[in-house]
Amino acid sequence: MLETTDLRKVFKSTVAVDEVNLYLNKGESVGLLGPNGAGKSTTISMISSLSMPTSGDVKWNGESVVKNPNVIRNVLGVVPQEIAVYEELTALENLKFFGKIYGLKGETLDQKVEDALKIVGLEEKQKELVKNYSGGMKRRINIAVALLHEPEIIIMDEPTVGIDPQSRNYILEMVRQLNEEKGMTVLYTSHYMEEVERLCDRIYIMDHGKVIATGTQEELTSILSSEESILIELDRPYPNLVKALSGLEEVLQVVEHDKGIKLIVTKGSRLLGKVFQIAEQEDAQIAGINVQVPTLEDVFLHLTGRKLRD
């Protein structure tokens, strides 16, 4: 249905996207995961025909989007990372404006506007100016505009950035419904691991402009099937503790985070005793300890050596 071949984008001397190959089948929900600056938005921009690739191609049902952008424009809905609506207009006025530029009119337009408002749950607030909306409501109207013309495929570029957990949950549930109940194909980019885990059938992990891993969640986490992670909660940072733990043979990686330390260790290594012993030597106060099976976050850490939100 949608396929990119050796997609590459170079800005002056910077390679933003490097030989990216990905595909989406009809009705699939695919995640594009990567930290800020990984090249996700640039990839989306090329897929949606807004930006011309330096080389490579994007094909929609076998036709080149690069050569003829119109093959995808009428079937594509894009939710950009930015709130791409007119904040001085009401939600209703925005939807009517964008509906009309998609060629909708009369009763059809009114019906589609009503449907879009219902999907995003803004019927009650449709006559309020967007600038008076909360962050979550702005995100929802941003999505509603992309749904107006009932696209076959929707691309969402980090649609939950900067909003409260309740709005975020609402949006995630909405995306799930669009995919599962309406059969809409979804390409979802995020640097929130749990969103991608919750929504997507397959995942592409990008870093420094390249796809570094791809597969289902199970396939990706199986990369770390021989490993497990130990989360150690500390009352404050202990640099010497990190240094000491890094020196242990069974420890593959040590990552500091805001609450303590995460160790990626060989599966089955009986390490907890040594951890407590070293902590005592370093006079570190352990507040809690938790052994986990690998997550996508761990996979990303394993593949890139850094956390997703670095």
Partner: peptide, 13 residues
């Protein structure tokens, strides 16, 4: 700047 223009272009206009 707010990518509204992109949205207009994506409509095929």
């Amino acid at each position: 700047y707010q990518h509204v223009f992109d949205r207009i272009l994506l409509s095929g206009r």
